[in-house]
Design a protein around this nucleic acid. Structure first.
Length: 258
DNA sequence: ATGGCCATGAAGCATGGA
């Protein structure tokens, strides 16, 4: 069972690339972030023609998340991250697929830091940790998949010294991520590739992809109940080189049958 | 050290992204 996450940076602008990748990769679950489309502008018909169904939470201009599954829509269990009823940003959707809880998330960027946007990021992170801890406690098979906007370590950025003050790499951000992992979550990419630089994002400037000047910020964390089933984890980095691509690449894991 | 690019919304350019 292949579970993927992909920050599309505009689902309508990205539709040809997304459909091409779906056809090649054939994932069983896809978490999408940054739809950048209101609820009614989600391109459901095109996605259906590609053999997928979707649940999604749109928003005008920014944010927006979705979960795609072949043939049958995922069984939605929640939309909107718990812990703040005043948070109106579409950054979280959750569903149960084949007995696995899929949490699709788009953590706030947080720049400029320090400042109110960084405060929002850290608060959002706290809510996520609280919510995630409940799954660990109950030993629920779950995957946290999405754009975390976290560079976990120096291995995950082409030039760490340039990112020290950035909201993606600041100590508070890295610490929050480590605290999340300490609950028992497995960072899937690092389980299989503990030492090599791996990136999931390359900005549009200065030929960043051509120079491999990237960041690893899209993550798939699996709960202890699933860790033993992890069989593969990778980034479809070639997609970043396609015409009209997102600045992120699809990232995925494979789970053995449970 | 800086700016470079891309998408959206709206009809210029401002804003957000990371």
């Amino acid at each position: 069972m292949k579970i993927a996450t992909y920050n599309v940076n505009g689902i309508n602008a990205r539709l040809p690339v997304l459909l091409q990748w779906l056809e090649q990769a054939k994932p069983a679950v896809v978490c999408l972030q940054e739809l950048k489309a209101p609820q009614e502008k989600f391109p459901l018909e095109a996605i259906r023609e590609a053999g997928y169904e979707a649940i999604w939470h749109g928003q005008k201009s920014w944010n927006g998340v979705a979960i795609l599954t072949p043939h049958i829509p995922a069984e939605e269990t929640r939309r909107g991250l718990a812990g703040d009823p005043d948070d109106s940003q579409s950054r979280y959707i959750e569903a149960r697929v084949n007995g696995i809880l899929i949490r699709c998330l788009y953590l706030p960027n947080g720049n400029p830091a320090p400042g109110p946007k960084f405060d929002y990021k850290l608060r959002w992170f706290e809510r996520l940790k609280t919510h995630a801890a409940q799954l660990i406690k109950q030993n629920i098979p779950a995957v946290l998949a999405g754009d975390f906007n976290v560079i976990p370590t120096e291995l995950d950025v082409y030039k760490p010294e340039r990112w020290l003050e950035d909201a993606l790499f600041r100590p508070e951000t890295r610490q929050a991520y480590q605290q999340l992992l300490a609950q028992g979550w497995t960072d899937s990419l690092r389980k299989f590739h503990p030492q090599q630089p791996i990136y999931t994002f390359w900005d549009y400037f200065r030929n960043a992809y051509g120079r491999n000047a990237g960041l690893r910020i899209d993550h798939l964390l699996v709960s202890p109940a699933l860790a033993g089933r992890l069989s593969e984890a990778a980034v479809d980095h070639q997609v970043r080189g396609w015409e009209k691509s997102s600045d992120h690449a699809p990232t995925w894991i494979r789970l053995a049958d449970g």
